[in-house]
């Protein structure tokens, strides 16, 4: 019974039953099946909604088909892939994707680290109030956020232009639209990144900093030479998230605010795929583009995850 007491949550200890061990046990063979039975719903969903479509995309990618049940799909071999890789818009979309990633780093690394370091000095209720404020944008639905920001950025009566005394039509200008998409996406994830850094900081052992302070190190030196290196696993993790997920985070905003425009100024790789899928009316082309993206994405993720282990500094 002492064992049960140590458990943190209210695990209602069972009333002592008479020894019925084995009576209700299922036959051996059935018990070997048990884990598969527990997994069955998840596996069914996995196959039907993720891996079946993935395979189907592979199949579709060698056809040319305009999605209409009445028109035949013609086999075209690898032509779709050639077309995708030689399309000029692909390079543009990759460029926009990278710009967004770089633009996101201040919001996912720099500001969160500064805020989290400062927040360490603040204690008690004030701290949770600040956290609550910074985190709130994460909870705003993307469409609502698009609506609010369209209002804030309105050229004639939006709050942003009025405060800055400008008359910029942000979303109609190529650079302005990209900056807007970056800032709004950054606004969404800033609080989340800050909390991750804060969580990382609580994992950093204070003793090193205390020892350095005794040796006469200045606070600034302690931050740069001790705290930040010890925080490197968190920072590497956030960089990884930024590189892999920026395109995904910005996608709903691009769709609702700029539709990739003006021109292709805000068409990132996800938005390009989305357009291929539903605007180009060529299912094969869209599937091929999706697969190319998937393979490259897997490779990038793999490289980054392997690299991140080497880049982190551990105190053990």
């Amino acid at each position: 019974m002492t064992l049960l007491v140590e458990v943190p949550a209210p695990a209602a200890p069972a009333p002592p039953e008479p020894a019925t061990v084995g009576r209700r046990r299922l036959p051996r063979r059935l018990r070997a099946l048990a884990p598969y039975l527990y997994l069955a719903p998840a596996l069914a969903l996995l196959v039907v909604w993720t891996y079946r479509p993935l395979l189907q995309a592979v199949q579709l990618s060698t056809y040319s088909w305009n999605l209409l049940p009445t028109s035949p799909a013609t086999e075209v071999g690898l032509a779709n892939f050639r077309e995708v890789l030689s399309a000029p818009e692909l390079g543009d979309a990759v460029g926009v994707t990278m710009l967004i990633i770089v633009g996101m780093l201040p919001f996912t690394i720099v500001v969160p680290v500064v805020v989290a370091l400062l927040a360490r000095q603040v204690h008690g209720r004030a701290r949770s109030v600040y956290q609550a404020l910074v985190f709130a944008p994460m909870l705003v639905a993307p469409v609502a956020s698009a609506a609010v920001w369209q209002w804030l950025l309105d050229p004639s009566s939006g709050a942003v232009n009025r405060v800055l005394g400008l008359h910029v039509n942000w979303l109609a200008d190529a650079n302005g639209a990209l900056v807007a998409i970056i800032v709004i996406t950054g606004w969404h994830v800033l609080g989340f990144a800050t909390l991750i850094v804060s969580a990382g900081l609580t994992g950093v052992d204070d003793e090193y900093a205390a020892a350095a302070a005794v040796d006469g190190a200045r606070p600034r030196q302690i931050t740069w030479r001790i705290t930040l290196p010890l925080l490197s696993p968190t920072l590497v993790f956030l960089t990884l998230m930024t590189v892999l997920l920026s395109a995904q985070w910005s996608f709903p905003l691009i769709d609702t605010l700029t539709q990739g425009g003006p021109g292709t100024a805000t068409t990132n790789i996800y938005y390009l795929l989305w357009e291929y899928g539903f605007r180009s009316f060529d299912a094969g082309h869209g599937a091929a583009a999706g697969l190319v993206f998937f393979v490259v994405f897997l490779a990038v993720a793999w490289v980054l995850v392997t690299m991140s282990d080497r880049l982190s500094f551990h105190d053990d």
């Binding site: 996995l46 909604w49 479509p53 995309a57 299912a283 869209g286 993206f293 994405f297």
Partner: peptide, 16 residues
């Protein structure tokens, strides 16, 4: 599953 982009599976799932 999170590595499989939504844009790749959306068409087949839509058809289903």
């Amino acid at each position: 599953t999170w590595l499989v982009p939504f844009q790749v599976t959306m068409l087949p799932n839509y058809v289903l």
